[in-house]
């Protein structure tokens, strides 16, 4: 929605706190303050513990889910969240059977779906910048559910929520990010959100070809966030004992412009019990899922495996976020 309208309908959240997210677009974690994130986390905690019920707080509201790229967790958790809050859901989940397959532009899709009286659009699209573009086209809030390799802010919210609940803090956390840092959309969002906390240290653990993009480094250095890079296997082993959390990402095969580059890095890292033996015993392993072969199933049995709980956190986080953005009734 136009920026002049962002944050326009500020009300009070069910926590009794000012709802700073009412009516806002959720496009990038660059735009979210620590207070915005903490508001979502506190409401999600209350939802998880059953002290606050958000059921039916969005009765009479319509949420559109436009997913132009494959999704399991994000689509399903947004769908279940919206339905359990009582909202009506309009969805485009398979672009092959919509007018997108006939070449309809994102702009036209947004204008068309907005005409059906929706109160919010949740968008996943393969193009970087698609969410911001859609937000400028729409008069209702747009939530970015993945914009190509650029960002995935709601994933970062559930990631930091998981770190906070498992580690007991985010300030001062030492986070290793291992894998495809170049094409993963979860990595930039996670970095931008972690940058809002104090004393966080980030370790980018990846071969040169998969190292983090320059705009992420620039954002972190402008905000004084300490980060280091570990490229070789030996460097990665050296970093392991320092970490509180190891965040693993899949190689995003579908985003490589050159298939030969993918072949060069394919299988270049595997997180297994042996690699974890170099870390602390309480090291938490996270993964946005799906995984392919970069995270061995043998880790599932270890207490270090946080990733299934991380995935479950998607639901309370998206419930809380939808409720706050739509300014749901108490």
């Amino acid at each position: 929605m136009p920026s002049s309208l962002s944050g326009g309908r500020e009300g009070v959240s069910p926590l009794g706190l000012k709802n700073t997210l009412a009516g806002r677009d959720i496009i990038s974690c660059r735009d979210l303050s620590r207070e915005d994130a903490e508001l979502v986390f506190r409401l999600a905690e209350e939802v998880n513990s059953g002290t606050i019920h958000l059921e039916d707080t969005l009765v009479g509201r319509k949420v559109a889910l436009i997913f132009v790229e494959p999704s399991t967790r994000t689509f399903q958790s947004f769908y279940v969240a919206a339905r359990s809050l009582g909202a009506e859901v309009l969805s485009i989940h398979d672009p092959a059977v919509s007018s997108i397959a006939k070449g309809e532009t994102l702009y036209d899709t947004v204008k068309m779906i907005e005409g059906y009286g929706v109160d919010c659009i949740v968008l996943r699209h393969p193009a970087r910048g698609s969410a911001r573009f859609a937000a400028e086209a729409a008069s209702v809030p747009v939530i970015n559910a993945g914009s190509g390799s650029q960002e995935h802010p709601t994933q970062a919210l559930l990631d930091v929520f998981t770190i906070k609940s498992k580690l007991g803090r985010v300030d001062g956390a030492k986070i290793g990010m291992l894998g495809d840092l170049r094409y993963s959309r979860t990595i930039p969002s996670l970095c931008y959100l972690l940058a809002k906390y104090n004393g966080v240290e980030i370790f980018f653990m990846a071969p040169h070809l998969l190292q983090v993009r320059r705009e992420v480094e620039l954002y972190l250095s402008e905000r004084g966030v300490t980060y280091r890079k570990a490229v070789e296997a030996d460097e990665i082993k050296e970093v392991m004992p320092e970490l509180d959390v190891l965040y693993v990402t899949r190689i995003q095969k579908e985003r490589f412009p050159d298939p030969t580059e993918y072949e060069r890095v394919r299988g270049s890292y595997v997180v297994d019990a042996k690699l974890l033996s170099y870390g602390r015993s309480d090291l938490g392993v996270m993964h946005p899922l799906p995984r392919v072969d970069e995270l061995s199933p043998e880790v599932d049995k270890l207490p270090n495996a946080w990733y299934f709980e991380q995935a479950r956190n998607g639901l309370p986080i998206r419930k809380a976020l939808l409720h706050l953005v739509l300014g749901g009734a108490e």
Partner: peptide, 12 residues
Amino acid sequence: TTCITNVEREPA
């Protein structure tokens, strides 16, 4: 190349 401003026919 994957920026929305480079997507054919999008008015960006």
